[in-house]
Computed example of a mutant assay.
Amino acid sequence: MTIRLNQEHVNDTAKLMIHRLIARAIGRDPSLIDSAKISLDRRASDRYAGYSFVSEWDDLLRLPPSKVRRRLTSRDEEMTRLRLSSPFVIADGIDFSDVALRRRIWQAAKRLAVKSAAHEPAGARIAA
């Protein structure tokens, strides 16, 4: 049986995995939220002023750390969309520059996507 993957689903799963790691790191060091605020402020002033994701992230980053952690790992549509513009991935104190680490995360996301696609009805699969 050949399973065709939706590349967007794999990428969203990888972003969720990254944000789960970030949520764990926030549990150890809540000051990472302040780093994300600084990162967001830089992005907003540099080129994204007026974009809705800036105010949405700003609101989210004002929450208590425990709520920020829950939101980061939420599977709802809003967070799936917001993870595309996450200030955490470029914040000081968080480092995802290691190509091998990113490759392992993406491969794990792909395995999960294959697993979930195998359990979907054939008509529900969307080819990449």
Score class of each variant (00 low, 15 high):
A44H: 08
A44N: 10
A44K: 01
S45F: 15
S45V: 12
D46V: 15
D46T: 14
R47P: 09
Y48S: 10
A49M: 06
G50V: 06
G50T: 04
Y51Q: 11
Y51L: 14
S52T: 11
V54N: 02
V54D: 00
V54W: 00
E56M: 01
W57D: 02
D58T: 12
D59G: 10
L60E: 02
L61P: 14
L63R: 10
L63F: 07
L63A: 11
P64M: 02
P65Q: 00
S66E: 15
S66N: 11
S66I: 08
K67Q: 11
V68Q: 03
V68L: 02
R69D: 01
R70W: 02
R71I: 07
L72F: 02
T73S: 06
T73I: 02
S74M: 00
S74K: 01
S74D: 05
R75L: 08
D76F: 10
E77N: 12
E77Y: 10
E78A: 08
E78H: 13
M79N: 01
M79K: 01
T80V: 13
R81K: 04
R81C: 09
R81Q: 03
L82W: 08
R83M: 03
L84E: 10
L84A: 13
S85N: 10
S85D: 07
S86G: 14
S86Q: 06
F88S: 15
F88Y: 14
F88D: 08
V89I: 09
V89A: 12
V89L: 05
I90F: 06
I90L: 05
A91G: 03
A91R: 05
A91Y: 03
D92T: 15
G93D: 09
G93N: 14
I94P: 01
I94F: 01
D95Y: 03
F96D: 01
F96Q: 04
F96T: 05
S97E: 13
S97F: 03
V99A: 11
V99D: 04
A100G: 07
A100W: 06
L101P: 05
L101Q: 04
L101G: 05
R102L: 07
R104P: 06
I105S: 02
I105H: 04
I105C: 05
W106D: 05
A108N: 12
A109R: 09
K110V: 12
K110A: 12
R111H: 12
R111P: 06
R111N: 08
L112H: 15
